[in-house]
């Protein structure tokens, strides 16, 4: 029971941290490099503990992200639902990939996410973003092993602590 609770704490705090990282200021030159942290954390939990991540939760997290960012309400919700759906569909395969293959899958997911975002923004009449728009998914791919190993390690430690 204790282990369950610790897991829940890790789960919640990782999501809260992702929200804060999303808002974290960076120097002007580094801005386009900011990965979509929320998506990375969501992908991790969808792969490892799919009982906790459903489309509904992805939707709610996306709405929360929209309210925080003050963009079009529903934009991140749409993006995260699509992301969660793909991950949950291919979960059994993704799960047993080595980390570098997972990273490539994450790159594909994030690029797809960018395309979805571009579509939404196109429909709401915004101009095309610059080429730097496409850098963030690559950074997300590079950040994936970090997120994966860190969260995996923390979970393993939590498990080991309990008798």
């Amino acid at each position: 029971m204790n282990r369950q609770r610790a897991q829940t704490w890790l789960y919640i705090s990782s999501i809260v941290l992702a929200f804060l990282l999303q808002l974290l200021p960076l120097p002007q030159a580094l801005l386009p490099f900011k990965p979509f942290w929320l998506a990375l954390v969501l992908i991790y939990w969808a792969i490892e503990v799919p009982e906790r991540i459903g489309l509904g939760l992805a939707f709610l997290l996306g709405l929360a992200g929209d309210v925080l960012a003050g963009e079009l309400l529903g934009e991140q919700a749409l993006r995260l639902v699509i992301l969660a759906f793909i991950v949950l569909r291919f979960r059994s395969r993704l799960r047993f990939f080595p980390v570098w293959q997972q990273s490539l899958a994450v790159l594909a997911l994030l690029l797809n996410d960018r395309v979805v975002q571009l579509m939404v923004r196109g429909f709401s009449g915004e101009p095309m973003p610059s080429a730097a728009y496409w850098i963030a998914p690559v950074i997300g791919m590079l950040a994936w092993p970090l997120v994966f190993l860190l969260l995996d390690d923390l979970r393993a430690r939590l498990r080991a602590q309990d008798p």
Partner: peptide, 13 residues
């Protein structure tokens, strides 16, 4: 469910 949520998101947007 995917379709339901996508529709919901679009309606909200």
């Amino acid at each position: 469910r995917l379709i339901v949520y996508l529709t919901l998101a679009m309606i909200i947007m």
